[in-house]
């Protein structure tokens, strides 16, 4: 028998190669436009002159972009382990969302997305965020035009967690705590942006918190921040506070459990086939 030794190493779930990285970057650029157009749009641009239609355009295009980027991520390397882990973590995230009922931002799901992204890497983090949002929407009947915006923003939160610099012990927890607080606030503020133009453009709300088409970046940024403070800060701060509290209290055991499991799943363990070693073996039958 002349078998040679062959070794392969299994890779981490949803590994991001150069191509997938490019696709994610392009999709994220699109996503940023989808959120930020009211702020950065030029006064004479189509988006601004048809400001009440633009959110709907993005609500139609964004699902397509997310579909394309998720398909690309899967094509890059999602084996059964990656799928099952992302699925199960999404289930945890989804189960934690209706649990808080979304009341006053009490959404414990963020810790799963952030710590999952941290341990499993940016690609899986994006997957857990986006898929977790989708699954929880299906579970609670929350599918709607907002879903694509929630998916990509939650995906960014997980992606960012996966990109955080190396750290361990206390400094890792501190890093994650700071990131968690910022990410949760940013998520809330971003999510306000997609519907802010639609609800304020008609002019019934005070001008100071309304979107004024073509009023320029600085003015609209100020109005938007005022809008966020006036309407959603009451949700965003509890959300961030809860995430921070959870990371401080349970971050360490959750990270350990995730790492233990990713060892059990043998993501980076080599698979070797070797020719039989000659030895006196007992031959049966």
């Amino acid at each position: 028998m002349t078998l040679q030794t062959a070794t392969t190493t299994q890779s981490r779930p949803a590994h991001i190669g150069r191509r997938t990285g490019l696709a994610l970057a392009a999709a994220s650029t699109f996503g940023l436009f989808a959120f930020l157009w009211p702020l950065i749009g030029a006064a004479d641009s189509t988006a601004i002159t048809h400001a009440s239609e633009t959110p709907w355009l993005f609500a139609v295009l964004l699902p397509l972009v997310i579909a394309v980027v998720l398909a690309d991520l899967a094509d890059g390397g999602l084996d059964a382990k990656g799928i099952a882990l992302i699925g199960v973590l999404s289930a945890v995230a989804a189960a934690l969302r209706p649990f808080g009922g979304g009341h006053a931002g009490f959404e414990p799901m963020w810790i799963v997305i952030i710590l999952g992204g941290r341990v499993l890497g940016p690609g899986a983090g994006f997957g857990i965020g986006a898929i977790g949002m989708f699954a929880s929407a299906l579970l609670t009947g929350g599918v709607g035009p907002w879903l694509a915006f929630q998916m990509i923003a939650a995906g960014w939160v997980g992606l960012g967690a996966g990109l955080l610099p190396r750290a361990s012990g206390k400094s890792e927890l501190a890093l994650l705590t700071v990131y968690g607080a910022l990410a949760c606030l940013a998520y809330g503020f971003l999510l306000n942006l997609w519907f802010w133009p639609t609800v304020t453009v008609a002019g019934t709300l005070p001008a100071a918190i309304s979107f004024i088409p073509g009023a320029g970046f600085v003015t609209n940024l100020g109005h938007w921040l005022a809008f966020c403070i006036a309407t959603s800060l009451g949700f965003d701060i509890p959300r961030a506070a809860l995430t921070v509290a959870l990371i401080i209290a349970a971050g360490r055991p959750i990270l350990n459990a995730l790492r233990r499991d990713s060892r059990r799943a043998a993501f980076d363990v080599p698979v070797t086939f070797r020719a039989p070693v000659p030895a006196s073996s007992v031959h049966v039958q």
């Binding site: 999602l78 099952a84 579970l139």
Partner: peptide, 23 residues
């Protein structure tokens, strides 16, 4: 879901059938 999204679809199926077990 289209065939190209099959893997993602399975992930969501897993999430959906798993969430009630968690509760």
């Amino acid at each position: 879901v289209p065939a190209a999204l099959y893997e993602v679809g399975v992930s969501i199926v897993v999430a959906l059938s798993f969430a009630p077990q968690l509760v």
